[in-house]
């Protein structure tokens, strides 16, 4: 199968003062896959995300997205290039309605300028109308339903907030969707539903997904490939089943003794 590279990380390193949070990580994501990124707490998973999306600039190394380097670009430009993300601790625009949250996600795909905001030419009226319809469709797609569209995001139930964040990220038709622990704080039933949604995303929208997850079950169930970070370094990568059995991974999760016993 000739796979097309969507994102490539080359020797990405991030240091904060003396602390190396991410250490020379090489990483490839192919178009259409669901890649899992796991690792114990403090392994550098979210820092890796933050480097990719432009919140941090890597100390060393490069990210290449769709054949072009994106290292050091501003977050909004990286989003415009086609990488969208959600956050570990949900970060919605609390006082805006669910619909408006999705419309903000569509920001880079709309053209209305500051002047047009006041003069409101026909073109912008049409654009707004289409954007609204598309946003409502997206809310439907992630399972929020149109009834919640006008509710303030902060008043939505927790599970809906997670889904709304995914809808907002999808609004710009991203090529790569980064999900940062999308099932955190959910019960098994909710986790199962969300996992189905992620699977659905790829099948129906053709989005490539990079998933950070704590819950092994979730990652193992849907990922095509799993990478494991520990102390900022990539210690294992491969098919979920294979990675799961890797002594290094068991050690990272459970400590040295466990690996010896397991083996």
């Amino acid at each position: 199968m000739a796979q097309e590279v969507l994102l490539e990380a080359k020797g990405v390193t991030k240091r904060f003062g003396g602390l190396t949070a991410v250490n020379k990580v090489d990483f490839v994501i192919y178009k259409g896959m669901i890649a899992g990124l796991i690792g114990p707490n403090g392994a550098g998973k979210t820092t890796f995300f933050n480097n990719m999306t432009g919140l941090y600039t890597p100390t060393e190394g490069d990210f290449i997205f769709n054949g072009k380097p994106i290292t050091g670009l501003k977050p909004h430009i990286i989003q415009d290039r086609g990488i969208s993300r959600t956050f570990q601790n949900i970060r919605l625009f609390g006082q805006l309605s669910a619909l408006e949250n999705v419309l903000v996600g569509m920001h880079t795909r709309l053209n209305g300028t500051v002047f047009e905001a006041f003069f409101r030419p026909k073109r912008v009226i049409h654009e707004e109308k289409r954007a609204r319809e598309k946003a409502l469709d997206l809310l439907d797609f992630v399972g929020l339903g149109r009834d919640s569209a006008e509710m303030a995001a902060r008043n939505l139930p927790y599970g809906f907030q997670r889904r709304l964040e995914i809808a907002r990220a999808l609004a710009s038709d991203p090529k790569l969707l980064l999900l940062d622990e999308p099932t955190a704080g959910m019960n098994p039933q909710e986790k199962k539903e969300l996992t189905e949604l992620v699977d659905h995303l790829r099948k129906e929208l053709g989005v490539t997904v990079l998933l950070i997850e704590h819950d092994m079950k979730v990652v193992m169930g849907i990922s095509d490939r799993v990478s494991v970070l520990d102390h900022g370094e990539k210690i294992a990568e491969g098919l979920p089943k294979v990675v799961q059995a890797n002594p290094k991974v068991i050690e990272a999760y459970l400590g040295t003794g466990a690996a010896a016993e397991g083996a």
Partner: peptide
């Protein structure tokens, strides 16, 4: 408008706004 929504998003959460483009 698109502009007003961008302003509101920035008010609510600057970093999430950046990440939304």
């Amino acid at each position: 408008s698109r502009t007003g929504r961008a302003m509101a998003a920035m008010r609510e959460d600057e970093y999430a706004a950046q990440s939304s483009g």
